[in-house]
Design a protein around this nucleic acid. Structure first.
Length: 290
DNA sequence: ACTTTGACCTGTGCGC
DNA sequence: TGCGCACAGGTCAAAG
């Protein structure tokens, strides 16, 4: 579900409500999500205060007064919201909903309710508790943040130089650049006029035109992510902001999920096609993405 | 080191 | 209305 913009909106939405809050009680409604929760997970969290929330790639990092960091990945359908238990359904998930797997009971801040709920129907998300997030297996190999100065044409050229895989696939590889997902890769490639099937290495070793495309691609990635954040992210189905509102960037999609629709590039007579690449859908205009 | 494939889950929408 | 299938914002382990 959530790519970098959505995770960043969630981070921003949580911050005023959980910064400084104390984790009074933690309830796990099942022993695992994608992976098992770490040993004594709830007990280790209880009593700690949340001293900061950051985002790295698609991960949320909750810094705790215990000096541990709670790492949360939302997978495809993970979400946080504030809610109260429903007395009518006390039998299931302690009064919360079917896929409400983690209940964080907070105190000491002015949050909408004391209960911060992590919900995740498909359970592709996971949580971990670590001493040093930089060293964690999940974060240590990640590529640069696409919105940072560490991500630029020279860096992308270097990272593409050994990759014979399609540029679409390469951009989804979090070890090349961290935070892009299927939507924003499709949209950025469209803006850059690059066919998603072009091999990454060919943007490096190919023609002058290919080099210019790679250089432009960097700017389009930054632009599309920035615009999506400004629009509150993209809501397809599960994604909601912490306050329950939806994002709006889905209304700005040019190609994602637009199969059969006319290309919106001025003067282009093409229509959007859908192809499968490494098991995911790619949407693109075969006329103006070459 | 790189590439490809399948696996992990549940829900929804479609064609019949 | 029900059934079966395809597909969905992601990532990782395994195998070549």
């Amino acid at each position: 579900m959530p790519e970098l913009p959505e995770v960043d909106i969630i981070r921003a939405g949580l911050t005023p409500f959980v910064l400084g809050a104390r984790l009074e009680h933690v309830t796990l409604n099942r022993p695992d999500l994608r992976y098992s929760f770490p040993h004594s997970f709830a007990a280790q969290l209880e009593g700690a205060r949340i001293t900061g929330i950051r985002r790295r790639a698609k991960y949320l990092l909750f810094a705790l007064s215990s000096k541990k960091t709670l790492i949360s990945h939302l997978g495809m359908t993970g979400n946080f919201r504030f809610d109260l238990p429903d007395p009518q359904t006390r039998g299931i998930n302690h009064g919360f909903k079917k896929h409400d797997h983690v209940i964080l009971e907070l105190s000491g801040v002015n949050s909408p309710t004391p209960f911060l709920i992590y919900s995740d129907p498909r359970r592709f998300g996971f949580m971990d508790l670590v001493d040093d997030p930089q060293k964690s297996k999940y974060l240590k190999k990640l590529g640069p943040e696409p919105l940072g100065n560490q991500f630029n044409g020279a860096v992308l050229r270097q990272r593409f130089a050994s990759r014979r895989t399609p540029v679409k696939t390469a951009l989804l590889d979090q070890n090349i650049v961290a935070g892009l997902g299927n939507i924003y890769v499709c949209e950025a490639l469209y803006r850059a006029g690059i066919d998603p099937r072009v091999r990454a290495i060919d943007l490096v070793d190919g023609s002058k035109r290919r080099s210019l495309q790679l250089e432009a691609l960097v700017g389009h990635i930054k632009d599309v992510l920035g615009e999506a954040i400004d629009s509150g992210g993209s809501t397809l189905k599960d994604y909601k902001k912490v306050d329950g509102g939806t994002g709006y960037f889905q209304h700005s999609f040019k190609v994602y999920d637009k199969k059969g629709q006319p290309c919106s590039t001025k003067g282009c007579a093409g229509s959007i096609e859908r192809i499968a690449q490494s098991g995911r859908s790619s949407f693109y205009c075969p006329v103006c993405q070459t």
